[in-house]
């Protein structure tokens, strides 16, 4: 698949403070890339540089073949930007607001505005002042604004921040629908579940790119998979027999549980269980210990910048 967003040593300083350092990232056409990082990591700053609203101190980007720092107006014809705190003219209605923004593009604004008011489920309230809208409605209206000109590339800066679980879910479903339509989405978040749920790939970011990979690979590459075997009773005989197996890397004991790290997890598990049974171990249950993305994330953030690699 072709690359549609690419950055080369993108760097931004504010005085002495480096907000983004040497960001090299590639986003493929049609994927959702999650930009995951704690507060102050430089997510918003990165998005602003990619969307051309601020200039990099060093480096550059290419978005859909356009340099944001060179041809910003041309870029804005084809990208959509959902800003971190999207505001509206509160004294104007939803429709008036949307029409105002839509008229800056070369589109049939009346048609497009109606389309997105309906699509974002705001049609009934189109003639109400935005000042009377709930946060969730405003966010949907903001999405409508980012989409009204049918951009192929979308930058969404924390699209579900501050929404209740129900509204957040609605917004996530909308985002997934947008991917189905073939749009490329660059999404920043500090919500791990959201990143895992929505994104094809996740870039963990804190001033620098820490790691970029699929959620699945992030799990596997960082932690050996572990199996937890719960026994009626644990004795040294069983522990020693298990330790003797050549594919077992590590054995830990926690009450009646054995925590075992092994090579080739799926292939060797049956042999492990057979060994325990043959050592007269009475197995109550066997399950895999899954590391949450949160652990992965916290590990990465702690290491910070220590393991720069880019997976597929």
């Amino acid at each position: 698949m072709s690359v549609i967003i690419e950055s080369f040593d993108l760097t931004r300083k504010f005085g002495n403070l480096t907000a983004v350092e040497d960001l090299n990232v590639r986003v493929k056409k049609g994927e959702i890339l999650g930009f995951l990082g704690p507060n102050g990591a430089g997510k918003t700053t990165s998005i602003r540089m990619l969307a051309g609203t601020i200039a990099p101190t060093k480096g550059y980007a290419v978005v859909a073949g356009i340099r944001p720092d060179k041809e910003v107006e041309k870029l804005h014809e084809i990208i959509g930007l959902l800003t971190e705190t999207p505001g509206f003219y509160e004294r104007l209605t939803a429709k008036e607001n949307l029409l105002y923004f839509a008229r800056f593009y070369r589109i049939n604004s009346d048609l497009q505005v109606d389309k997105y008011l309906k699509k974002m489920d705001l049609w009934e309230r189109r003639n109400h002042k935005v000042g009377t809208f709930s946060k969730g409605m405003k966010q949907r209206l903001a999405l409508a604004r980012a989409l009204v000109h049918e951009p192929e590339v979308l930058f969404l800066d924390e699209p579900t921040a501050g929404l209740d679980p129900k509204s957040a879910r609605e917004v996530r479903q909308l985002i997934l629908k947008l991917r189905e339509e073939g749009r490329t989405i660059f999404l920043s978040t500090h919500n791990l579940e959201e990143a895992e749920l929505l994104c094809d790939r996740i870039a963990v970011f804190r001033t620098k790119l820490v790691v970029l990979d699929t959620p699945y690979n992030l799990r596997n590459s960082l932690f050996q998979r572990q199996v937890i075997v719960e026994l009626e009773a644990v004795d040294d005989n069983i522990v020693n027999r298990v330790k003797g197996l050549d594919f077992v890397l590590n054995v830990g004991k926690d009450g009646r549980q054995l925590i075992i790290e092994l090579k080739d997890f799926d292939d060797n598990r049956p042999a492990l269980i057979k060994c325990i049974v043959e050592s007269n171990g009475r197995i109550q249950s066997v399950f895999e210990k899954k590391h949450s993305l949160e652990e992965i994330y916290l590990t990465l953030i702690k290491e910070g910048g220590g393991m720069e690699h880019e997976g597929r």
């Binding site: 969307a51 609203t53 804005h76 999207p86 003219y89 800056f104």
Partner: peptide, 18 residues
């Protein structure tokens, strides 16, 4: 000042308007 208070300037600057 209204645009500043409502936070409409950044979305506005993301459109092709000069």
């Amino acid at each position: 000042v209204e645009e500043k208070q409502e936070g409409t300037l950044e979305p506005l600057l993301a459109t092709p308007v000069r």
